[in-house]
């Protein structure tokens, strides 16, 4: 009855392994990346719950101001473009990291940071606008769900920005080594993930509103 699965002996070999990319070279680094993927799994569940809530409450505006009256698609497109570009630039940073070019890598991270801050600025502007039009967390079930979903994403982006800043300082202090490379790689994974979430927000929250009343 037993299934004696053959295990790939490579899996069990000791680290560090010079053949691997920098961020995978230590055992800790490799575990960190795997663990972070697990964490992203949990994040997917978290955002699924938030999206689920949002869709359940989508019509429960309770005679408050309607989203269609407030959504500014021009702004949203600008936000989307900014965040998507930042995802691309963080990918370029990792590419430079793989090539061992710390300076260029830091420049790309810097650009990513600026774009991330730009996105946050636009989001804060949007929220302030909405609040001035009478749509806040306490307005109605719909707006509660809207602000919690977008707010959670926004807080994640802010955390990502803070994280990148910390990493930049560490690379500056300690240079590009397996530890800092590992951190940068994970932070960029996180950044790509936030980008994917935003694409869902863009379609599920904003675009969908063009279709349904």
């Amino acid at each position: 009855m037993r299934m004696d699965n053959k295990i790939d002996p490579k899996e069990l070999e000791d680290f560090p392994d010079e053949e691997r990319p920098l961020e995978y070279q230590t055992e800790t680094g490799s575990l960190n990346i795997f663990g972070f993927w697990m964490f992203l799994g949990a994040e997917i569940v978290l955002f699924s719950a938030l999206f689920g809530t949002y869709f359940v409450l989508i019509f429960r505006t309770d005679s408050s101001v309607l989203p269609t009256e407030l959504f500014d698609m021009g702004l949203v497109l600008a936000m989307t473009f900014t965040l998507l570009t930042s995802s691309f630039t963080s990918g370029l940073a990792i590419n430079e990291m793989r090539l061992g070019n710390a300076r260029r890598m830091m420049i790309w991270i810097g650009i990513t940071l600026v774009l991330g801050l730009g996105f946050l600025g636009m989001e804060i502007y949007e929220f302030v606008e909405f609040a001035s039009e009478g749509a806040t967390l306490a307005t109605s079930a719909f707006w509660s769900a809207f602000f919690l979903l977008l707010g959670t994403h926004g807080v994640h982006v802010a955390m990502g920005v803070a994280w990148f800043i910390i990493i930049l300082i560490q690379i500056k202090m300690r240079g590009l080594n397996p530890v800092t490379a590992n951190k940068t790689f994970i932070a960029s994974l996180y950044w790509h993930f936030l980008d994917v979430i935003w694409i869902f927000i863009f379609t599920g929250v904003y675009l969908l509103r063009l279709v349904i009343a």
């Binding site: 978290l46 809530t53 429960r60 505006t61 967390l137 079930a141 707006w143 509660s144 769900a145 919690l148």
Partner: peptide, 24 residues
């Protein structure tokens, strides 16, 4: 998420699960 929503309901008057404002 559920705890956060109830916390928002109780601390900051959100309307996820309340009787008022279309909560569910």
């Amino acid at each position: 998420v559920a705890l956060a929503m109830q916390t928002f309901d109780r601390l900051w008057d959100a309307a996820f699960f309340t009787l008022q404002d279309g909560g569910m």
